[in-house]
Design a protein around this nucleic acid. Structure first.
Length: 463
DNA sequence: GAATTAGTCACGAACAGCCA
DNA sequence: TGGCTGTTCGTGACTAATTC
């Protein structure tokens, strides 16, 4: 590229437009012309080529779209990478070119001062591109996060971030000033306290960046910045960067803030099939205290000697609870033994059952009607307001028709009722044996003797 | 509309069970 | 036996429903 920083080209001429970086406008080429399209960095748009023309397609970073080329035209076709169809056109200085043919290869187009470049080669690496002075950086690692950024007020998180590199520098002083100058005078701490009271939503986990595979245990620290920003994004406006900022301001982080940081780190550590190793816990604990020196000793989060700490405890219990949750959800899944019928069939069956009593001639038809109405009956039964009386009044054949009960049980549990009886029989025997061995057949306690005797009697009566 | 109540959820701490 | 992992219990915060 022949034009230096701060210089623009108009036709054949070139000139200096600014002495300082802050004053540099964005140089674009429109057909044969080159001009400045924005005076301030904040106004920097994305430069694309439309046919023979080059233009700015977005005024603000938040509006950065994916630029693609369709035939002879270039345009913005999607807000999100998932929607991208063809290749991506980027402008590098005076040049424009397609950098990818397939969606998988789509890179992110950013403007660095007067340069435009691709910052990620793979979709997995796609991040939200922000402009900071003449630099740009990726602040979110995953595609899904791009859409979220659009919903946020102004991409503050992005601006707070510098780069993803080795440096874990904290927030910029400029950003701090910006915040203080904002119309909203509500303190950051208030904001965070409010958010903290909301608690942490497990759904957030879905958006956690997953670069465990690429992680290198030789690195001394985890990229805590990214983890926290993406972890606590978009909860009523509280962003991880704001949280980090608040903690940075505190001499000693509040219990709530410390917890939020730990939760974010802990959730990131949780993997679906693997419990984090002691090394990983230790590394994360070190990362936290390195990033937030005011949190104190890393042993609070994880002590490699005792192999415990708040971080470890959090991860362990979170894993356990989430497993439980999955099991609970699965148990609520539709029962395979219950078939679905059309509303008309169900209605007809309900009317038939209501207007007829069970007899030898219509027994099979009644059983069929029970099958047809089983799904709505389950919903009816599951309703907390439904009493046993209501069920039996509505479906009296559950009392009079023995097969109805057996079929109902098998359809719901997937197992025949006799299996339950057999299993319970064995359990009952074991309980009586255990009681007799513990208290002796001539138990000294009257109540123990009576209990065993009544259990035996009940067993006999049931047979 | 405010106050109260009940249900739910997430958490930390402690304890329990399994396994090498 | 000790480490690892899961479970239980008590607590606090939140929300929806109910009562006044």
């Amino acid at each position: 590229m022949g034009v230096g920083a701060g210089e623009i080209q108009r036709g054949e001429d070139a000139g200096v437009v600014a002495e300082r970086v802050e004053e540099v406008g964005v140089v674009v080429q429109r057909g044969e012309e080159t001009g400045v399209v924005a005076e301030r960095v904040e106004e920097v748009g994305v430069v694309v080529q439309r046919g023979e023309e080059t233009g700015v397609v977005a005024e603000r970073v938040e509006e950065v779209h994916v630029v693609v080329q369709r035939g002879e035209e270039t345009g913005v076709v999607a807000k999100r990478v998932e929607e991208v169809g063809v290749g991506v056109v980027v402008q590098r200085g005076e040049e424009t070119g397609v950098v990818a043919e397939k969606v998988e290869e789509v890179g992110v187009v950013i403007q660095r001062g007067e340069e435009t470049g691709v910052v990620a080669e793979r979709v997995e690496e796609f991040g939200v591109v922000v402009q900071r002075g003449e630099e740009a950086g990726v602040v979110v690692e995953r595609v899904e996060d791009v859409g979220e950024m659009e919903d946020q007020d102004n991409g503050d998180d992005a601006e707070l971030m510098d780069s993803v590199g080795d440096s874990q520098r904290l927030l910029s002083d400029n950003r701090m000033e910006d915040l203080e100058n904002e119309d909203n005078h509500e303190s950051i701490n208030d904001e965070v306290e409010e958010e903290a009271s909301i608690g942490t939503d497990s759904d957030e986990d879905e958006d956690m960046p997953d670069f465990h595979q690429d992680e290198n245990m030789n690195d001394k620290y985890y990229p805590l910045q990214i983890i926290i920003v993406s972890m606590r994004k978009g909860i009523r406006g509280l962003k991880g960067a704001v949280l980090m900022e608040a903690i940075q301001k505190e001499n000693r982080p509040s219990a709530i803030h410390t917890r939020l940081i730990m939760n974010a780190a802990g959730r990131w550590l949780i993997r679906k099939d693997k419990y984090p190793s002691p090394k990983e816990f230790a590394k994360m604990a070190e990362s936290i205290t390195n990033f937030f020196p005011n949190t104190g000793n890393s042993k609070i989060f994880y002590d490699p000697v005792t192999k415990t700490g708040t971080l470890e405890r959090y991860v362990r219990q979170k894993r356990s609870r989430e497993k439980k949750k999955i099991i609970k959800n699965n148990s609520n899944s539709p029962l395979t033994g219950i078939k679905t019928f059309s509303p008309r069939e169900v209605k007809e069956a309900e009317i038939y059952m209501r207007t007829n009593t069970v007899n030898r001639a219509n027994k099979q038809k009644m059983l069929h009607c029970l099958t047809v109405t089983r799904k709505i009956r389950r919903d009816f039964v599951k309703d907390k307001k439904t009493t046993a009386d209501m069920i039996l009044n509505k479906y009296p054949m559950l009392i009079t028709l023995h097969e109805a009960v057996l079929e109902e049980f098998e359809a719901i549990t997937g197992k025949p009722l006799y299996r339950l009886v057999q299993t319970w029989d064995k359990i009952e025997d074991s309980i009586i044996e255990e009681a007799e061995s513990k208290f002796g057949k001539t138990a000294s306690s009257t109540s123990a003797r009576e209990l065993i005797a009544s259990a035996k009697q009940a067993k006999e009566d049931f047979r």
